[in-house]
Design a protein around this nucleic acid. Structure first.
Lengths: 196, 196
DNA sequence: GTCATCCTTTAACAAATGTTAATGGATTTG
DNA sequence: CAAATCCATTAACATTTGTTAAAGGATGAC
């Protein structure tokens, strides 16, 4: 993919969050390396080094962790045309505290996080973009927090469907159930119930 | 409170997160205005303007929201000697999307968020401090997310006790229950069960 | 195409949690 | 001090959710 193609793919992703100048878009695009992963690939490992920012050009991925029982718990979904959690929020000393996995074949744009931070420092529109990503990230977390703390399984599933409708027929129900904080058996029951 | 006193109170709070130089501490302290609130006071209102960062000199507070049924849901607790969520993560266009309430009499240090952002841009140690606050914030959210998604009420209460032991005899059980994602009746049952 | 595998659904029962309402203790107000 | 208020506890019952295991369907490998 050449620079021009990268710019064209990156522009809508960035502008949807917070518009930047053509010059800023180019500075960001200069940092981009395209990465492709196959369905099921874990491309960021908890406990391992990571120093990148990511945009999702194509496909869907998720972040997850193991709970005390060793079961995978899905934390977030990242959709085509979206931005992964900012590096600073998912690493400490460049060590990732989450796993990220491709749920379909995915095409990602990756940027060196230190270089991107320098762009944020030097360019107010890129800084605004970065801050908006942060805000959206936290907003999504608060929204999910409220859902988990005060809605029952049925209501949480309905909320999930509003937000991620098409995922339900695309990815494993075990993953979705862990995201909703219920078992896959309960998810199946709710699905049946909601069909009637 | 004079500048020297403010510095002395601020130093341990900042250094616990990420140490800064004496000069940086002074620059931050220059921005600080001390605010005092009484138990029960809501000092940040959802939907209203807020453009400050905060440190907790004394007391305990919480963030909360109303769920679809209009009940208060406790999102986070902030303890003496801690830092409130970064402004960028709890506001959009300077409008707060959370309520913050004093659970005891609290003494807060408040800083203008724009001026603090400028300090972050110009001073690498202050930037590191700000980024560490962010990381801690997200880590706490992920930890709670996992607890809500994969532990039962009993296990969540045990986790809460590890982290906030002294709060249990200090603040309303209705608040704690909403934080744990259970009813106050369930909380009472669990407390009894765990005493035996 | 058949077999093997993986995932979802279903069933039956157990356990956890919610709902509503009553009780009792502690604190505050007059 | 007495009354009123607030809040945690308890009880009884309903509902939801979990657990375990079996059955059914879809998908991919050979």
């Amino acid at each position: 993919m050449n620079l021009e193609q990268i710019k064209e793919r990156t522009r809508p992703i960035v502008n949807k969050v917070s518009p930047v100048s053509e010059r800023s878009l180019e500075l960001m695009s200069d940092l981009i390396i395209v990465e492709v992963y196959e369905k099921g690939d874990v491309f960021i490992d908890r406990g391992k080094n990571n120093n990148k920012e990511y945009f999702v050009y194509e496909g869907v991925c998720r972040s997850f962790l193991l709970n005390p029982e060793g079961e995978e718990v899905t934390i977030s979904y990242f959709l085509e045309g979206g931005v992964l959690s900012p590096n600073k929020t998912r690493t400490a000393n460049q060590i990732s505290h989450l796993n990220f996995q491709a749920l379909t074949k995915v095409t990602l744009a990756s940027l060196n996080a230190d270089k991107f931070e320098q762009l944020m420092i030097n360019h107010i529109d890129i800084r605004e973009f970065g801050n908006m990503v942060l805000q959206n990230e936290l907003l999504a977390k608060v929204e999910k927090e409220i859902a988990l703390a005060s809605l029952n399984g049925r209501e949480r599933l309905l909320l999930f469907r509003k937000k991620y409708h098409f995922l339900e027929n695309l990815i494993s129900h075990v993953d979705i159930a862990s995201y909703l904080g219920i078992t896959n058996v309960s998810l199946s029951r709710l699905r049946k119930e909601l069909m009637e």
